[in-house]
Design a protein around this nucleic acid. Structure first.
Length: 277
DNA sequence: CTTGTGTCCTGTAGGC
DNA sequence: TGCCTACAGGACACAA
């Protein structure tokens, strides 16, 4: 579900609510929602710890604990996080709950159980989190520019969209924001990376930066299914800024021709056949 | 090393 | 109403 702007929005909402809270108990309602370690060590590792700081890297949300340890969430396609009163009704599809000494609780909701939560004690990362250790630059990083992207794409013959969604190249970019950046840079998702001119890659890097920053500003994208919601239940607003994603058959805002949809890998891609080359 | 495809899991929407 | 298929903001294992 969430890409970088959504996870960033979630982090900003949760940070003031969670910081300094102490974990009293941990309830695991679905064992396979815990990615690491085993359930017993997951619980004992967390109980008694205090929440120190929230950090986002790519699409990962990392919660630093006191006196040590990290709690890491990856929400994948359908994960949610909500802060609730521990006495309130249990949300549907809740998989893990952290109960705080304050009487509040953090609810990890994940209908599809693709998203996971991890507890890491030491400095290193378990193999199930190797993706976190291999992330490339985020497009909102000031070092992310045309030069960086050209180096990463050099010699690559794959379709550009699949490379934009490669977290080792563009950390935090997913299906929505890659389509939107490609539209703004006037490049088709199916273009082979090695056919892009240096100028086009510079435009693409700029577009990625702009789209992700705008996504954060508008607090993420909530489509009509409300699958992504902020932790307080509010919808995002970036869906109103979308130019192509989910707009099959609707007129392009620039040329008026209908937006096309195609399958790339197993994902939907949207683009304007007139404006994008 | 690179690329494309299948798979994990569950729910929902739409066609018949 | 029921059954079937397609689809879903992701990432990884695997084969070629």
């Amino acid at each position: 579900m969430p890409e970088l702007p959504e996870v960033e929005t979630i982090k900003r909402h949760l940070a003031p609510l969670l910081t300094d809270n102490q974990i009293k108990t941990v309830l695991v309602r679905r064992a396979d929602a815990v990615g690491y370690p085993d359930i017993k060590n997951f619980r004992t590792g967390l109980e008694g710890k205090k929440i120190k700081q929230l950090v986002r890297r790519g699409k990962y949300l990392i919660i630093h604990l006191h006196p040590h340890g990290r709690l890491i969430f990856h929400l994948r396609l359908s994960g949610h996080l909500r802060v609730v009163n521990n006495n309130d009704e249990i949300p549907a599809y809740e998989r893990v709950r952290l109960v705080f000494t304050s009487g509040r609780a953090l609810s990890f909701i994940e209908p599809r159980v693709l998203g996971k939560v991890y507890y890491v004690d030491g400095a290193g990362l378990p193999s199930v989190l190797q993706g976190l250790g291999r992330l490339g630059l985020e497009p909102i990083d000031r070092r992310f520019n045309g030069k960086y992207l050209r180096e990463k794409l050099r010699g690559r013959r794959a379709k550009i969209k699949s490379l934009l969604m490669d977290q080792r190249i563009c950390a935090g970019v997913g299906n929505i924001y890659s389509d939107e950046a490609l539209f703004r840079a006037k490049i088709r998702p199916t273009r082979r990376a090695n056919t892009l001119k240096p100028d086009e890659i510079t435009q693409l890097a700029q577009a990625l930066r702009a789209v992700l920053k705008s996504g954060i500003k508008w607090m993420g994208t909530t489509m009509t299914d409300n699958r992504y919601l902020q932790p307080d239940g509010a919808r995002g607003e970036f869906q109103n800024q979308l130019r192509v994603f989910g707009k099959k058959g609707m007129p392009c805002g620039i040329c008026g021709r209908p937006i096309k949809r195609l399958k790339l890998g197993n994902r939907s891609s949207y683009f304007c056949p007139r404006c994008q080359h």
